[in-house]
Simulated scan of single mutants.
Amino acid sequence: MEPGNQTQFPGFILLGLSEEAQMQPLLFGLFLSMYLITFSGNLLIILVIITDTHLHTPMYFFLSNLSFADICFTTTTLPKMLLNIQMQNKIITYEDCITQMFFFMVFGELDNFLLTVMAFDRFVAICLPLHYTVIMNPKLCGLTLLASWILSVLNSLLHSLMVLRLSFCTELEISHFFCEFNQVIQLACSDTFLNNLVMYFTTGLVGVIPLTGILFSYTKIVSSILKISSVGGKHKVFSTCGSHLSVISLFYGTGLGVYLSFAATQNSRTTAMVSVMYTVVTPMLNPFIYSLRNKDIKQGVRKLFNWQTFST
């Protein structure tokens, strides 16, 4: 029986991080706070970059888009989770589940591509400084952003359409706080071989290739830094990419941790708790990493609040 033709298919049941009633108010308060911090922090980064003309450079252009992607990334999961806790209703409809999976993958993969492009930007700035303005011109920046969006949407659309061909029977419980792709696939009572095959293949394309590009860029960057004789010069050059390197380590480290924990334990609830790191904590910490370790952003924040104070 195909999901699209089912009249008795209510949707899925999101079990969340805990089924204990006394834990629900604590989880609601904790994740509401984290969502508000993520939203306001990343929105502040975007506003600072837009209002400060000194930050109208390729690096900050991609950073503003990364902040936008982080806002959307958390918005695909946390509001539904908070609503379920508040309404004491764990059901998510089939259509909403597919939609949530689609947008979650879109913005997760967009993060991945933007981090790769930002690594290339730092490579050009440090290793080819005399050619930076020629290579990282506005046209190339626009094209790379467009390509990142297109690849993210196409890949997510492929996976979502392939889920539509699956049938779901009686087991509808998802041990997660959102419709995580792997767990939804496991609930199917039809053959999922093709879905798994496509998933592994595309993971290699949109996961391994960008990560290889990042590693290549930073290998060249480190090589260039080591050639600098003065300690002050090394510190100055490294400071230009320190924040980005921290975000990359956090993004890939937490993401890899989720899949390693899943492979090691096969415990869906444990995986759900670990996945909070890359779905919630990482987007929340990104603005702090860039604002605390980046002088330009800190100056932009001061200018923004001074302008607001003056205008009021």
Results as ranks from 00 to 15, higher is better:
residue 94 Y to W: 05
residue 94 Y to K: 09
residue 232 G to H: 11
residue 268 S to P: 03
residue 212 T to H: 09
residue 251 F to P: 10
residue 193 F to N: 04
residue 174 I to V: 12
residue 217 S to R: 03
residue 293 R to N: 08
residue 279 T to H: 14
residue 260 L to D: 01
residue 150 I to G: 04
residue 146 L to G: 03
residue 116 T to M: 10
residue 131 H to C: 07
residue 305 F to R: 12
residue 277 M to I: 00
residue 277 M to C: 08
residue 131 H to Q: 14
residue 150 I to P: 03
residue 147 A to P: 02
residue 206 V to I: 04
residue 204 G to F: 04
residue 149 W to V: 01
residue 10 P to H: 08
residue 84 N to Y: 01
residue 209 I to P: 06
residue 8 Q to R: 14
residue 193 F to L: 07
residue 106 V to A: 14
residue 111 D to N: 15
residue 147 A to H: 10
residue 279 T to S: 12
residue 91 I to M: 13
residue 296 D to L: 14
residue 226 L to C: 07
residue 158 L to W: 09
residue 284 M to E: 06
residue 268 S to M: 12
residue 103 F to V: 04
residue 261 S to D: 04
residue 27 L to Q: 10
residue 271 T to K: 15
residue 292 L to F: 10
residue 112 N to D: 05
residue 132 Y to M: 05
residue 147 A to S: 10
residue 84 N to K: 11
residue 114 L to N: 04
residue 72 C to R: 12
residue 68 F to V: 04
residue 298 K to N: 05
residue 144 T to R: 14
residue 224 S to I: 01
residue 247 V to W: 02
residue 83 L to Y: 07
residue 7 T to P: 14
residue 131 H to D: 08
residue 247 V to A: 13
residue 229 S to R: 14
residue 204 G to L: 05
residue 248 I to P: 07
residue 160 S to E: 04
residue 272 A to I: 01
residue 27 L to M: 09
residue 170 T to K: 15
residue 239 S to K: 15
residue 53 T to Y: 05
residue 189 C to P: 00
residue 229 S to V: 05
residue 236 K to C: 03
residue 173 E to Q: 14
residue 281 V to C: 10
residue 74 T to V: 12
residue 65 N to C: 07
residue 150 I to L: 14
residue 304 L to V: 01
residue 109 E to A: 13
residue 223 S to V: 00
residue 20 E to D: 06
residue 52 D to N: 15
residue 269 R to A: 04
residue 205 L to M: 06
residue 83 L to D: 06
residue 266 Q to V: 00
residue 198 V to E: 05
residue 152 S to K: 12
residue 293 R to V: 00
residue 164 L to K: 15
residue 177 F to R: 10
residue 164 L to E: 08
residue 98 I to F: 02
residue 241 C to D: 06
residue 22 Q to N: 07
residue 91 I to R: 15
residue 157 L to W: 13
residue 172 L to Q: 11
residue 249 S to Y: 01
residue 69 A to M: 04
residue 199 M to H: 12
residue 12 F to R: 13
residue 78 L to P: 08
residue 129 P to S: 11
residue 121 D to H: 13
residue 177 F to Y: 09
residue 259 Y to R: 14
residue 15 L to S: 11
residue 71 I to V: 09
residue 203 T to C: 07
residue 156 S to P: 10
residue 134 V to G: 08
residue 16 G to R: 13
residue 66 L to Q: 06
residue 110 L to T: 02
residue 211 L to F: 09
residue 258 V to P: 00
residue 108 G to I: 00
residue 128 L to S: 04
residue 249 S to D: 03
residue 167 S to T: 03
residue 261 S to C: 13
residue 41 G to Y: 01
residue 120 F to W: 09
residue 48 V to S: 12
residue 57 T to D: 07
residue 12 F to I: 10
residue 277 M to G: 02
residue 176 H to I: 00
residue 15 L to Y: 11
residue 7 T to C: 07
residue 14 L to D: 05
